[in-house]
Design a protein around this nucleic acid. Structure first.
Lengths: 350, 350
DNA sequence: GATTAGCGCTCTCCCCAGTCGAGTGCTAAC
DNA sequence: GTTAGCACTCGACTGGGGAGAGCGCTAATC
């Protein structure tokens, strides 16, 4: 536990460092703080902070740089959560209103907004149920032997796949099959569909197999598809201008390994989670922090959203924005699923 | 027109520069070439090449660096197109075979392969018809007033949108509406649907409006959705390590302006098109080259694919790979549309 | 005992000059 | 037309010196 003054100083150092990205001198702090003490006193306190590992120095007589531990303390104890300003909320609501009907745009917009508001990389996953359920099936004849199989899952996720038959098949026959299967499978999980053994023709059976396979593939994925936005912001951060560090990150991003490294850490916690620097599993993320939140309806469909930036991240802003966006997405989903609103204002569908 | 020897030397300079990314000395050329002449002679020839603008020098006594004009000459006159090696073709076929049924994966795979084969950024657009045509419509009730409207276009593109009704509506009613509209609109364009004025109920009319709107939105876009892969490769190129140049590029990429700046240039040309350095419209692309090709079935559905790299790009490899991938995608589409193959081997659906 | 002023120390950054090596341009000879 | 030789230019690297930032320490002060 830190004394009040040390807390104060740590907070100031972090605030300055977040703004300026360069080591913070005792004099700067003495000047900014309203403690009315001299730089020398600040130095003593900073020495203590360094001793305890809250800050480090790049070189023996350089200014203070917050350490991961310092940021952690800051996040846990020092920041009081800021409310997202009304103007910003209105802007967001308005933009969501514009894409209200475009399910797929929700995520893209959320990612774009987070990225812009926080000038960092934003990641938003599509919502996903722990176990997906059959909602509807549709087949469209493409050629004599070939059809497009469209599967709608309860989370309003669309999956499509080609399906080839051994013999010629007409659109009418396809419609008959899909009507029958729709009636049989409605609301079932993949394994439930597999467990049923109704009387099915060869073709129907083939479609059933394809459906089950698609659902299983969906179920084996831990998270939905990703939306990533704002990589450009990362490039303009001084800590990643060297492009070597950026390379490691881009690798994670493009191969989708970023998500798999971050998301499993997310236990079902309800609030906003902050992962700082070396707390990350991936080496390339050693100098990054992640602020993320779950959104969605527990048990039914949920996803994650968050931002990735340098450890020198504006945590206060980030946490409030991520939390807000999570609530907003939850609200939207709730409206979609149950026609009711979990929160208060925000746009409404319809 | 260049003398044979100068051509030869230019080719060698470009070859060396593509490999090494550093200015090429006369001695290097004298050594590599089998001309049996001394560096001094090469120097004379290089002076002539510089005079004519095919190469430049970074500083007064540095080696030769190919200019845009030099690359252009190289691309037009010097390279003989290389065939994609069998092993590579087999690898590609195999990978496409694995995702054969996943329509959406085709593009992703094509982009990933191009990016990997050429270690550069690859862009692949989804195929798109000049004017889209209605194929099938499906509605799924989500709540009492809310339904998911799924529109399948002839290019096997799926579009989805929420649709809210003024009064309660059941799945059965939705099915009736969609059956009726499917019969009416099959194969029509957006404006044709608008021109028809059959007897429709209020709800049916509402759905019709939504469908037309979705189709019009699709029609106003010049190209389909993009798949971008391999940004990480760009970062490891020495010319983009400075990250300032990279910033401009990422900006183009993320805002989707890259495509809009490149693709309009693509006249209906059938072959592979190469845009070198300052021939690009965007400033940020001044030091980039683009190799791209159209693919698809003229008039029905087509897209573009290509790679973006530094002007120091392995043009021979790039052109052959891009051409090959274009043919392959065309074949796949042809199979999908007409059940016949435009090319020769490659994977087959079914 | 906490705080402060003062001073010396350490480290980085920047500029400069000097050196080295690569590679040219020129000239004169072949 | 080609070549050898040579002087010249320029960039990259290196080491030194000065400036400045900012600390730690000590001794004096409240």
């Amino acid at each position: 536990m830190l004394t009040e003054r040390r807390e104060n100083i740590l907070g100031l150092i972090i605030g300055e460092y977040i703004l300026g990205a360069s080591p913070v001198a005792s004099e700067t702090i003495a000047h900014k703080s309203r403690l009315g003490v001299s730089p020398a006193t600040i130095r003593n306190e900073m020495a203590a902070l360094e001793e305890d590992g809250y800050i480090t120095r790049r070189h023996i007589s350089g200014g203070g740089v917050p350490s991961d531990k310092g940021y952690r303390y800051y996040v846990e104890s020092l920041i009081r959560e800021e409310e997202v300003p009304l103007a910003e909320r209105q802007m967001i609501s308005h933009l969501f209103f514009l894409v209200e009907r475009e399910l797929e745009e929700w995520n893209r917009l959320a990612a774009a907004l987070l990225a812009r508001m926080l000038s960092s990389v934003a990641i938003v996953t599509f919502p996903k149920a722990p176990q997906t359920r059959f909602k509807h099936l549709e087949m469209v004849a493409l050629q004599e032997f070939l059809a497009l199989l469209i599967l709608i899952l309860r989370e309003t996720r669309l999956k499509q796949q080609l399906i080839a038959f051994d013999e010629m098949i007409s659109q009418d026959e396809l419609t008959v099959i899909s009507n029958k299967l729709n009636a049989l499978f409605n609301g079932l999980t993949g394994s439930e569909i597999l467990a049923r053994s109704p009387q099915l023709s060869t073709r129907e059976e083939q479609v059933r197999q394809a459906v089950v396979q698609m659902m299983e593939r969906e179920d084996t994925q831990r998270y939905g598809e990703l939306c990533i936005e704002g990589v450009r912001h990362m490039l303009s951060q001084p800590e990643f201008s060297s492009s070597e560090k950026m390379l490691g990150l881009m690798d994670l991003l493009e191969r989708g390994r970023l998500a798999s490294s971050i998301l499993p850490d997310m236990v079902a916690e309800d609030g906003v989670q902050v992962i700082i620097g070396a707390e990350n599993k991936e080496d390339a993320m050693r100098e990054c922090s992640v602020v993320l939140a779950r959104y969605g309806i527990p048990g039914e469909a949920s996803g994650a959203l968050g931002v990735v930036g340098p450890t020198r991240m504006p945590y206060e802003r980030a946490i409030s924005r991520v939390r807000y966006m999570g609530m907003l997405m939850s609200d939207l989903l709730a409206q979609l699923y149950r026609g009711r609103k979990a929160g208060q204002e925000h746009s409404q569908i319809g």
